[in-house]
Structures are given as C-alpha cells and as structure tokens.
Design a protein around this nucleic acid. Structure first.
Length: 449
RNA sequence: CGGAGUAUAGCGCAGCCUGGUAGCGCACCUGCUUCGGGAGCAGGGGGUCGAGUGUUCGAAUCACUCUACUCCGACCA
C-alpha cells in the first residue's frame, strides 16, 4: 500500500477524551474515531488490525473443531421471554420496537438464539458433540463506557456455544476451548493467563477468565509467575484426544482475580519469589452453564437408550475489539505502538527519505515490488515529507520493521533496517534487504507454531 | 445511576472573573527554498464561540434550561 493513496489520519496531539495509552495511541494512529459514547468507527489501519485478530480467532476456533455461522444482531424478545432473561436482563439490554410495535432487542449475547437453532435441527446424540460459534457485533448499554474500544457499548465478540450429552462431554468441550484460547492469545503475541472465575449458580471449576497483564487492566489479579513461562500447546495438538493434562497443568498454579480471592490467600498459596500481583485486562471468558437455557427452551436430543436428554451447554467469549487495545497496552513505548508481527497492520514500512529524487524513487519502487513479490505486507511511505515526519509516523503506527532508503546510503548501494521493538538498526546491501526482512518476519507470524 | 468536570476552526488551547463585533500553535491551501528524527520564509482559507431562553444599547463573556462528552464510584466480553 502506498501511503500517498491510503487513508491514515494521524494526529500529532492526542484528543483530550482519551485517558489510557491504548486509547490515545489508537486515536493518534488514525485507527478509530469516536461517533458517540462507546461507539466507534474503525478507520482503515484499525480495521486491518481488527481483521487480523479475527482471522487468528477463526483459525484457532476451527482447529479446535468449532463450526462458524452467523446470527443476526437484532433478536426477537420472544426468544428471551422463553429463557426468562427478557425481564431479568437490566437496562444494559437495548430494547427496540419495530413498526408493528413488536419487541426486539439488539443482542448483548446469543445463548437463546443458538439454543433455538440447535433445538430446531439437532435430534440425536450422534450429532454431538457440537460447538457453534460466530463473530458478531453486540451491544450492551453500559452505564459508563470508557477507555476507547476497551469498554465500548457496541463491540465485536466471538461467542462459541457447545452442546453435549452430559457434564463429562461438556468438560471435554470446555478443555478444547481452553486449549484453543491459550493458542489464540499466544498467536497474537500475548500471554493470556487463565484465571478462576465466578461460576455463578452452576458451581464447579468450569469458569475461567483469560487475562492479559497490563498496568491499566481493570482487574487486580494475583498469579504464580511460573504461568508466564508455561509452554503453549502446539499446532499439532490433537483436539480429539484427552486435553485434561494441559488443563490440569495450567490450572494447577495459582491465578485469580481479586473477585475470586484475597491477597492473604494468595500470599499463603504461592511461594514468595513467585508471587505476582498485577492488573489484568479480561480478553476472554469460558464457562459451563449446564442446562440453564436448554431446559427452559427444550433443547434435547434422543440418547442411545431412546430417551430424550436435555443437552449440557457452555459458552466461550473473546472480545476482538477489546484485544486491539489490549495488545497496545502490552506493547508500546513513548513513540507509539509496537505491533507484534502477527497482528500488525503492515509487516514492514518502506521509507523513501527523499521522495521526488529520481534515483531514490526508482530504488524504492524496485524494492517495493520486491517486497510485494516476497509476500510481505508492506506500507510504502512515498509522501513528500521531511524524513523526521516519516520516522515519527512509522514509529507511531508501530510497524515492526522499517526499511529506510535515502540518497546517503543509496550511493553506496546500502539500505537500512530499523527494528521498531528494539530500536536496533542494521545497514545492508540493497539486494539482500528483502531476504533479510523475510527471514525476520516469517517466523514471527506464528501461523505455523 | 450517584458524585465531579468540560463544551471557542479538523486537533490542542487562550479569551470569560472585570460584556464592546474572536485569537494562538499544529493541521490545511499557494509559491519559493529545504530534505537521515514531526522543516524555513512569505502569502491565504476556515469558527451562527454545544443548543435554547433571558438580562443588556451591546453576550463567547452574566443568568436559567437543555444536550453532548469526559473523569471517579457501582456493573460488565
């Protein structure tokens, strides 16, 4: 993409509405524009990151055996009356009437609707286990939206719903999602720590929130620091096999939010040098809720013995529009964002230090073509701007690698690569620049690990 | 929903206390010069001062009402 033809409205100063660093940087980098409280337009750069995150989620959901579909944003109130939640849900739920004065709502979640789909089509235990998911916009009329897209009213959510014959089956489904989530966050360059969460009236140990550690996290969390070094289940993990060893390994170490524990318990449970009190951003939540919806809504299958069985369900959420700021909170410096390669809007930025100079232009054009041919997603800064402005923009929008080309190096046939994360610079012959970048970038895509 | 604030050009701000026909920086447009860390000089465009009502000869400025947005708290992917 040529920057001169792109739409990248970067700001030198951050709008005063922004309080936390990710919000400021998303505004300054031209990723989002607020349209109302808790409602945002996603500008091209932000949308590109959001889509990369969504793609990773889809790949890992599919790998785990979940099947994607898409449900509407507007739902009939009748469905929610069946589960009893139409009255139980508070003012967070946006209620609407259509022209016939029928009650509708903008879905804050989809348990009722997916249960309706299930009961319509699934009749036999032979069709289980089943896990259906979608990635759709939700609306929750939060009393106080804040922190940009971290806590917005309209937000994108991946929600998966598992259906099993009994609790044992539901547990296996739960483990599959648990492992998928570990992989999903890892692939985004994050460490998503599973933490015991409130199970509500169901009880048991099948409710985990995944948190990304960040100073600006909304929850106080306590964990065993060994969790940060645990190996992530590999790409060839058998999702049809027994995943309980992985689950048991991860959950054997202490990790909980302040809602689930207190500091004294934490101090007593974890050895001193491994105690880690931090703050976390909740980026995912998986939980088992049994027959809470299947019972009242009549979601059942015929079992092996010919008798009807109410199915056991679980639901599994991830917030992509929250993950974008979460990545930024976890990875930035004074100059701007530092994207992990796997979610970066562009993998490299080619900086032409003297646009308009025939020699530099020609060399950049050649390199740009070479970068594209090598399959590297590249932004080419071909604008007629001072060098400093280009460096500042490149740093701000956080592209992992800058390939810098100017008359000075060019006369010796040299290009320069700057690593955004470390600030390291290397000078190398023009002819080897693309191969070098490819070698740096490909392993960091994390698409084969 | 309780408490506290803010609203003046695309963004960041001054002006308001002590009413007198709106200003600065950045951004934008034109020209020239620059060109390895947010360029320099010259010229230029852009604002019913959030909305409404009132006080006054006169309101960005004073009063009242409303709206939007932000922050703190309780709630949540």
């Amino acid at each position: 993409m040529r920057l001169s033809r792109y739409f990248l409205p970067v700001l030198k100063e951050s709008p005063k509405e922004a309080e936390i660093v990710s919000h400021k940087l998303m505004l300054r980098a031209g990723m989002i524009k607020q349209q109302a409280a808790g409602s945002y337009s996603w500008l091209p750069l932000g949308f590109k990151v959001l889509n990369k995150i969504v793609k990773i989620i889809e790949e890992e959901q599919n790998r785990s055996g979940a099947v994607q579909l898409l449900m509407p944003t507007l739902q009939s109130a009748d469905l929610w009356r069946e589960s009893g939640r139409y009255d139980a849900y508070g003012k967070e739920m946006l209620r609407i009437q259509d022209r016939h004065e029928r009650d509708l709502l903008y879905g804050p979640t989809n348990e009722e609707m997916i249960t309706d789909i299930f009961r319509t089509f699934v009749r036999s235990y032979k069709d289980l286990p089943l896990n259906l998911y979608h990635i759709q916009w939700k609306f929750r009329d939060e009393v106080r939206p804040r922190f940009g897209t971290m806590r917005s009213r309209e937000f994108l959510m991946k929600d998966a719903y598992s259906f099993d014959l009994d609790e044992a089956g539901a547990k296996r489904a739960f483990h599959r999602m648990f492992v998928a989530y570990l992989r999903t966050f890892y692939r985004m360059g994050l460490v998503g720590i599973p933490m015991r969460a409130d199970t509500g009236p169901i009880g048991g140990d099948m409710s985990y929130e995944f948190h990304v550690l960040a100073d600006t996290g909304e929850s106080a969390v306590f964990l065993d620091s060994d969790l940060l070094d645990k190996p992530i289940p590999a790409v060839d993990t058998d999702f049809n096999g027994d995943l309980s060893p992985i689950f048991n390994d991860w959950t054997s170490l202490f990790a909980a939010t302040d809602e689930m524990t207190d500091e004294a318990t934490f101090r007593a449970s974890v050895s001193g040098n491994k105690q880690m009190a931090a703050r976390g951003i909740e980026v995912g939540h998986i939980f088992y809720f049994g027959t809470k919806y299947s019972e009242p809504m009549g979601a059942k299958v015929t079992g092996p013995d010919g008798k009807d069985v109410i199915v056991h369900m679980g639901s599994y959420g991830i917030g992509p529009t929250r993950l974008v700021p979460a990545v930024i909170e976890a990875s930035h410096d004074d100059n701007g964002i530092i994207w992990p390669v796997s979610v970066a809007p562009f993998e490299a930025v080619l900086i032409n230090l003297k646009a308009g100079d025939a020699g530099t232009d020609a060399a950049c054009e050649a390199l740009y073509a070479e970068l594209n041919a090598a399959g590297l997603d590249t932004l080419y800064d071909d604008r007629d701007q001072p060098a400093g402005a280009k460096f500042a923009t490149a740093d701000l929008i956080g592209i992992p690698y800058q390939l810098i080309l100017g008359p000075r190096g060019l006369k010796d046939g040299q290009a320069e690569i700057k690593h955004r994360k470390t600030g390291e610079r290397e000078t190398l012959p023009l002819g080897s620049a693309v191969a070098r970048l490819k070698g740096l970038i490909e392993p960091q895509r994390r698409d084969k690990v």
